[in-house]
């Protein structure tokens, strides 16, 4: 049982946590703080763990709360509703997929991805998935990850970040479409298309 607290095991765990926290906070110092606090809280808990997997699940549950705290603190200073140039560029790219009548441009519609679930078992896929998440503009990513990784309701996301619910939907739509395109271009390259 002690080996889940062995230095190498803890170091590997800490690295995974740091990746997860950095992806969401986009701030290495804040991510480091959240991870340290979560690890300290978990190890102080003097709980008995049925091996490493149980410890990891427990520590990640604490880490999520620490990430939420960090987001809350910063949401006072971050203006999520202001559009960056990157976000405007994403919207332009999205609009370019459509004809003036708002139907897909020939060849630009979403392709069939075959059996995408098969990708979930492949390590390479997750590297592309993480790269695509990192590629999202910071505010877009923040809203998306609160919704999908921290599993807030959309109402809670809007309330935390003080944005209107219609803006929340616009941001989530932007994020999902950006990710979809990124995965399509970098992983699911082939397939048939469109309307």
């Amino acid at each position: 049982m002690n080996d889940c607290f062995a230095p190498e095991a803890l170091e590997a765990l800490r690295r995974d946590m740091l990746r997860f926290a950095s992806l969401q906070l986009r701030d290495d110092a804040a991510a480091e703080d959240a991870v340290q606090e979560a690890l300290a809280a978990a190890l102080d808990g003097k709980r008995k763990f049925e091996g490493r997997a149980a410890l990891k699940t427990w520590v990640f549950a604490i880490l999520r709360n620490k990430i939420v705290d960090a987001i809350r603190q910063r949401s006072r200073s971050v203006n999520v509703s202001s559009l960056s140039a990157e976000e405007e560029a994403m919207d332009e790219t999205f609009d370019s997929l459509f004809k003036p009548n708002a139907h897909w441009n020939p060849g630009k519609g979403p392709k069939a991805w075959g059996d995408p679930e098969a990708a979930l078992g492949q390590e390479q896929f997750w590297a592309v998935f993480e790269a695509c998440l990192k590629y999202l503009p910071a505010n877009t990513a923040r809203v998306f990850m609160m919704r999908e990784f921290l599993e807030f309701d959309t109402d809670e996301v809007c309330a935390e970040l003080k944005i209107s619910s219609s803006n929340c939907h616009v941001i989530l739509h932007r994020a999902r479409n950006g990710l979809r395109r990124c995965l399509e271009q970098n992983w699911f390259a082939a397939g048939a298309s469109s309307c």
Binding site: G109, E117, L179, R180, S194
Partner: peptide
Amino acid sequence: CEGCGNFRKQMDFLRA
């Protein structure tokens, strides 16, 4: 519309 049908599957896949 096949393209939108694909889009729907892709949204479900993203969630998964």
